[in-house]
Computed example of a mutant assay.
Amino acid sequence: MREQPIGEAVENDEREEVIAYHRGDTRAAIDTLLEDIRHLRRQLTLAEGAMSRGMTRGWRPSYDRD
């Protein structure tokens, strides 16, 4: 899959690439994406615990989309 800038809309061809990678199994594609979300949330939790409040000037990460 190609990387895209943050904020750029997801295009249909990217969805098709994800499904093709999983040989047409949409449930497997969704499972992989959900596992990725869980992994990234754990990484965000670890990063939050490691950084000082002064480093981020009081900013706290959000675990859900606004």
Rank of each mutant, 00 (worst) to 15 (best):
P5W: 01
I6Q: 06
G7S: 06
V10T: 14
E11G: 02
N12C: 02
N12G: 02
N12E: 12
D13L: 08
D13N: 09
D13C: 09
E14H: 14
E14V: 06
E14S: 09
R15V: 15
R15Q: 11
E16V: 07
E16C: 03
E17V: 02
E17W: 03
V18L: 15
V18S: 01
V18G: 00
V18F: 01
V18Q: 01
I19H: 00
I19G: 01
Y21V: 10
G24S: 03
D25N: 15
D25F: 10
D25T: 04
R27Y: 11
A28E: 06
A28W: 01
A29M: 02
A29W: 00
I30N: 03
T32H: 06
L33I: 11
L33Q: 06
L33P: 01
E35F: 03
E35D: 08
E35W: 02
D36M: 12
D36C: 11
R38W: 02
H39K: 15
R41G: 00
R41E: 14
R42K: 10
R42Y: 02
T45Q: 08
L46P: 00
L46F: 07
A47S: 11
A47R: 13
A47W: 10
E48N: 07
E48P: 00
E48L: 01
G49S: 12
A50H: 08
M51K: 10
M51P: 00
S52I: 05
R53F: 07
R53D: 14
M55K: 07
T56H: 04
T56Q: 04
G58V: 03
G58F: 04
W59V: 07
R60S: 13
P61D: 04
P61T: 03
P61N: 05
P61A: 05
S62W: 09
Y63P: 01
R65D: 11
R65N: 07
D66A: 13
D66H: 09
